[in-house]
Design a protein around this nucleic acid. Structure first.
Lengths: 141, 141
DNA sequence: TTGGATGCAAATACTTTGCACACGG
DNA sequence: CCGTGTGCAAAGTATTTGCATCCAA
């Protein structure tokens, strides 16, 4: 199963014109092994244990490259800076993944979702928010 | 309408033992005026136009304080660093707002939500993700 | 009066960049 | 061989912190 993902990855890289380097493989394999959602620094710390000669910049650059080519995902597109909101009403967000603009959506239907029973009962959910990712009109060109 | 929010804010501060300072009012008022979701730096740049003597640290500290007391909201709890994910399957996230741990949820029902028609049709949505905010077992104490 | 708030500057955390060199295809 | 990738160090951006002083209640 792991092996098939690796093979797929190598093929995907080739298809997208990305060189299959030693470093790239090491980073990707580490990311696959992690079930949480590590930061670039986390992964750097992992990889460096095995390959002490790797550069931090290589890890950062690779993660961004792989993300841009849709080979891995980013949990949030809004990590660059904290964003604050004075609005008290419950609402959801439309996020332009290119320019990072955020638009509000109010929708009674979306506010009343039934929580899925897949959620671990020991986790206390007190709210939820839906983030729609896409492109605003300006960024569609 | 604006005035009533200000009055409410003053009352809330008193209730929570927060001093009502000149700086705090200026920051909060600016945030209320903005319909987008500004960063601390954005707000600092706004406030400083009117009150050139205010300190950047005061703006940052106030936003965090107000957030901790639930007087304003933060669009994301995961802004500290980019988080990557090797998993290809579509899924949603359970986020512990205290320790920032992220747990995955897979749910067919949640994957097939009907998009609300409140969404501006010029915005191209290509995906959505639900983030459930709460506290993990460890952080509930 | 007193605990919380402010201001400043320094420190820290995360990330990007420029450039010379190395390497995969 | 060519274009992409790597490594290093420096720079950039976002944020926090320590501490002396100040001020709202």
């Amino acid at each position: 199963m792991m092996q098939s993902k690796i093979n797929q990855f190598v093929q995907d890289c080739k298809d997208k014109g990305l060189n299959v380097t030693f470093q790239r493989m090491a980073i990707y394999k580490r990311l696959l092994n992690r079930l949480d959602h590590p930061t670039a620094e986390d992964l750097y710390q992992e990889v460096i244990k095995e390959y002490p000669m790797i550069s931090r910049a290589t890890v950062y650059k690779n993660l961004e490259t792989l993300f841009e080519h849709n080979l891995i995902a980013k949990v949030t597109h809004l990590h660059d800076a904290a964003r604050y909101d004075g609005k008290q009403e419950h609402h959801h967000h439309l996020v332009c993944v290119r320019c990072k603009a955020i638009f509000d959506i109010q929708s009674e239907r979306l506010d009343n979702l039934q929580l899925p029973n897949e959620i671990d009962p020991t986790f206390k959910v007190y709210d939820y928010r839906i983030q729609f990712d896409g492109l605003c009109q300006k960024c569609q060109s």
